[in-house]
């Protein structure tokens, strides 16, 4: 039981990661693919923050009378990753808008049909 509680965070992170991965590879709609990528991203954030947590710890802001803090370094990494993630999302969505202008659709199957690829 302790083992399950101790690893539940990691397993849910992996489940979310696979849900995002599944969306990216199985769905043809480009907006939905980008949402799948975002779910994948959030799962990685959860994995990192889970590893930074210390039982009985406080948020890493130095306060008198508190001895145990959570590990601040994964927080810094993930803070950067969130902001960069939004930048890549914005770029991906801009590409989707351009693809819509050029092909008139955002469905992968129809784009392939117009290009006679696949």
């Amino acid at each position: 039981m302790d083992f399950i509680i101790g690893h539940y965070n990691y397993w849910i992170a992996i489940f979310l990661m696979m849900a995002g991965f599944y969306t990216v590879i199985s769905r043809g709609n480009l907006v939905k693919k980008i949402i799948g990528l975002n779910i994948f991203q959030v799962s990685v954030f959860l994995l990192y923050i889970s590893m930074s947590t210390v039982k009985g710890g406080a948020p890493p802001i130095i306060t008198k009378g508190i001895e145990i803090y959570s590990n601040p370094l994964p927080h810094v990494l993930i803070l950067t990753a969130i902001v960069v993630g939004v930048a890549t999302t914005a770029l991906g969505l801009a590409l989707v808008v351009r693809i819509k202008e050029a092909y008139g659709t955002i469905e992968e199957d129809e784009i392939h049909r117009q290009d006679h690829s696949l």
């Binding site: 954030f45 923050i49 889970s50 947590t53 948020p59 890493p60 959570s70 927080h75 993930i78 803070l79």
Partner: peptide, 8 residues
């Protein structure tokens, strides 16, 4: 927040 990462 639950995992103490308030800035994140």
């Amino acid at each position: 927040v639950v995992m103490d990462a308030v800035d994140v």
